[in-house]
Nucleic acid binder design. Structure first.
Length: 556
DNA sequence: GTACTGGGCCAC
DNA sequence: AAACGTGGCCCAGTAC
C-alpha cells in the first residue's frame, strides 16, 4: 500500500488510499502529531511515496520515527529518465521539468526553490502523476524486474543516507586531537601553522635558498626547486620521489602533514564533529555510475591516518565489513563467465588467478584485473591483458564491448539498467570534425584520443555501476535485518545496532557488544542475499572480510 | 568580495 | 607530465 507525502507551504500532507479516493491529513513537520501519525501508519508496512527523502525524512528521524520502505521520486526519476529500457515511455519523452534536478544540487537549494515552487513544495496531484508515470515506465520496460529492484534499492539508499547522517559515526575528538598533536604539535592559533609544519617550512626555505617561499604555492615552489637545480616539471609526489636532493624528504613530509591538517585537522573537527559523532552529508546517486558522493565533510575520503578516531562507545563494538574484490566478482556475474565464477569460490579471487596459472603472482593478478576494469593498455597491466582475455573471454568481452560502444558515442547500461550519459556536444563536434574530408592529422588524433577516453569511461561505468547496485542491495538487506533485530524484545534492552558508515564496498555497524556476533552473521548473510537478488543462482560468491573492532584503525 | 580553474592528493 | 575509472576538498591564482 502506498502513502503519499506531499509538501505545501511548509506543511506535510499525508494521504492514505481509501475506498472513496485519497484521504489527506495535514501536519506541521516538527509537530509530535507527525511522529505519531507516521508511526501508526508504519505498522501497516506501507511504501512511503515522496519527492525527496533528504527533504522529508530528516524531520521524521528527529521526531524519533523511522520508515521501512519508500519511493524517492526524484532519485527514481533520474534513473528512469535516462534508462535505455524506458526510453520510449512518457516519463522519458516529456520535456524536462521540475523533476529533472541534478541530484547533487537538489538538497542544496531548498530555500531558493521555495519561491520558485521547487521540489520541496509538491502537491499531491503532481506527486501522484509522477509516481504513475514512473510505474508505467517500469511496467512497459523490457526488464521491469530489474528496474523495480534498482528503483527500490536507490530509494532505500536515500533512507539509509539520512539515517546514517542522523545517527552519526562515533568519533573521538580526544583521540583525533592526540593524533594531530603527536604528528604536528598542539593546535595553533587561528591562521597559524602548527609547530612541526612551521619548522618544515623553515627547513624547506633554507635548503632551497628561498626565504619567504610559500610551499603551498605550486608555481613558486616549482620555480624554487628548479633554481636549486632540481629538474622536475611538477611538484607531484611521484615525480619528487625520483629526484635526489636533501629537500625532497622534508618537502614530502611537509606535504603529507599540511594536507592532513587542512583537510582533516582541528577546523574540520569543529565543523563536522558534534557530541562525539561525525555527521557526514551523503549524496545518494551523486556519481554518474550510481555511487554515492558527499557534500562537505569528505566522508568518502577519511584518511587511513586518522581512522583510529572512529571509536565505539563503551560496551559497544564496530562491525566493519568490506566486500573483497567486489568489482571483479560483479563482472563475473554480469557476464555469466563460469570460469571467472569458479575463481570467485574462495575468499581471495586474486589468489585464484595465481593458482589457476593465469598470472604468476597476486600483485600481478590485481594489476591485471584492475587494468581490465579501467582500460589499461600499457605497462604491466597491458602486458597481462592477453592472459586474462584467454582465461576469461566472456568477462573481458563484456568490458571490451562496453569500451567499443563508448568510443562510438553510444550508451551502456549497468546490470539493473542505469544508463550512462551521452557524450556532450563538444565530444560530437570533435568526432564530426575528424570525419570531414579536410580534417588534419591533428584533428584525427584528437578525435581518437577523445573516443578512447570515453570508451574507458563506459567500460568502467558498467562494472562500477553494477557494483554500486550490489552494494545498495547488500546494505538494504543488512538494514532490514538490523531493524528486525531491534523489534525482538530479547535484544531491546541493550540498545539498537545501526549502520553508521558506507564507503562504496564497505559498511560499518555500531552495535552493542552483546550483539556483535549476530550482527556479523547478518552482514555476511546479506552479501549472499544481494548476490541472489541481482543474479539469481548464477554461482558467483561474494566474499566478505569482516572485523569486530573497538576502533576503525583495527579493521583490515 | 565572489566565482571559477588547475594542481595536488585523499578515498574506493 | 602519465600510464588507468569514479569522485571531494583544499589551496593559490585569476577574472570580474
Amino acid at each position: 500500500m502506498d502513502i503519499l507525502v506531499a509538501r505545501q507551504h511548509g506543511k506535510l500532507e499525508v494521504s492514505t488510499q481509501q475506498p472513496g479516493g485519497w484521504s489527506p491529513q495535514v501536519v506541521e513537520p516538527g509537530s509530535p502529531d507527525l511522529a505519531a501519525l507516521v508511526g501508526e501508519l508504519e505498522e501497516t508496512d506501507p511504501r512511503w511515496v515522496w519527492a525527496d527523502t533528504s527533504a522529508v525524512y530528516p524531520c521524521l528521524l528527529s521526531a524519533g520515527v523511522r520508515v521501512g520502505r519508500c519511493a524517492d521520486l526524484r532519485l527514481c526519476h533520474a534513473i528512469l529518465r535516462m534508462s535505455t529500457w524506458t526510453r520510449d515511455s512518457e516519463l522519458a519523452t516529456l520535456p524536462a521539468g521540475r523533476w529533472d534536478v541534478p541530484v547533487a544540487v537538489a538538497a542544496e537549494l531548498p530555500s531558493l526553490l521555495d519561491d520558485l515552487g521547487g521540489l520541496d513544495d509538491v502537491s499531491r496531484s503532481e506527486l501522484l502523476a509522477e509516481h504513475e508515470r514512473q510505474q508505467s515506465a517500469i511496467a512497459a520496460a523490457s526488464q521491469p524486474g530489474r528496474l523495480r529492484l534498482l528503483t527500490a534499492a536507490e530509494s532505500v539508499g536515500g533512507l539509509i543516507a539520512a539515517e546514517m547522517r542522523h545517527v552519526g559515526l562515533p568519533w573521538s575528538a580526544t583521540v583525533h586531537d592526540h593524533q594531530l598533536t603527536e604528528l604536528v604539535g598542539p593546535r595553533p592559533l587561528p591562521g597559524g601553522r602548527p609547530a612541526v609544519v612551521e619548522r618544515l617550512v623553515g627547513e624547506i626555505r633554507t635548503l632551497l635558498g628561498a626565504p619567504g617561499l610559500n610551499p603551498e604555492s605550486q608555481p613558486a615552489l616549482l620555480r624554487a626547486l628548479n633554481s636549486a637545480g632540481i629538474e622536475v616539471h611538477s611538484t607531484r609526489q611521484w615525480e619528487l620521489e625520483q629526484a635526489q636532493h636533501p629537500v625532497i624528504e622534508v618537502l614530502l613530509q611537509y606535504k603529507k602533514l599540511a594536507r592532513l591538517v587542512s583537510a582533516n585537522g582541528w577546523t574540520w573537527m569543529d565543523a563536522w564533529v558534534t557530541d562525539g559523532r561525525f555527521h557526514p552529508d551523503y549524496v545518494p546517486g551523486g556519481v554518474v555510475t550510481g555511487r554515492w558522493a558527499t557534500r562537505g565533510g569528505g566522508a568518502l575520503q577519511l584518511p587511513k591516518q586518522i581512522r583510529a578516531a572512529v571509536v565505539a562507545d563503551p560496551g559497544w563494538k564496530l562491525v566493519v565489513a568490506d566486500a573483497a574484490q567486489l568489482e571483479p566478482r560483479v563482472l563475473a556475474a554480469l557476464s555469466a563467465d563460469t570460469a571467472m565464477a569458479r575463481a570467485s569460490k574462495g575468499a581471495d579471487l586474486y589468489g585464484a588467478l595465481v593458482s589457476d596459472g593465469i598470472v604468476a603472482t597476486r600483485p600481478q593478478a590485481k594489476v591485471a584485473m584492475l587494468g581490465a576494469l579501467y582500460g589499461a593498455t600499457t605497462g604491466e597491466a597491458g602486458m597481462l591483458m592477453p592472459n586474462l582475455m584467454r582465461a576469461y573471454p566472456k568477462a573481458t568481452g563484456v568490458v571490451e564491448r562496453a569500451a567499443r560502444e563508448g568510443e562510438r558515442g553510444h550508451q551502456v547500461m549497468t546490470w539493473l539498467g542505469r544508463t550512462s550519459p551521452r557524450p556532450g556536444e563538444h565530444w560530437r563536434t570533435v568526432q564530426e570534425r575528424a570525419a570531414q574530408p579536410d580534417a588534419t592529422p591533428a584533428d584525427q588524433r584528437a578525435a581518437r584520443r577523445q573516443a578512447r577516453d570515453w570508451g574507458r569511461f563506459t567500460r568502467n561505468f558498467v562494472v562500477q555501476g553494477s557494483a554500486a547496485e550490489w552494494a545498495l542491495c547488500w546494505m538494504a538487506a543488512i538494514r532490514r535485518e538490523l531493524s528486525a533485530l531491534c523489534d525482538d524484545p530479547a535484544t531491546e534492552s541493550v540498545g539498537r545496532p545501526d549502520l553508521v558508515y558506507f564507503l562504496h564496498d564497505e559498511i560499518m555497524v555500531h552495535t552493542p557488544a552483546a550483539l556483535a556476533d549476530v550482527v556479523s552473521q547478518i552482514v555476511r548473510a546479506a552479501a549472499g542475499e544481494a548476490g541472489r537478488l541481482m543474479f539469481g543462482d548464477f554461482g558467483v560468491e561474494f566474499s566478505i572480510e569482516l572485523t569486530v573492532a573497538d576502533n576503525y584503525a583495527q579493521a583490515k
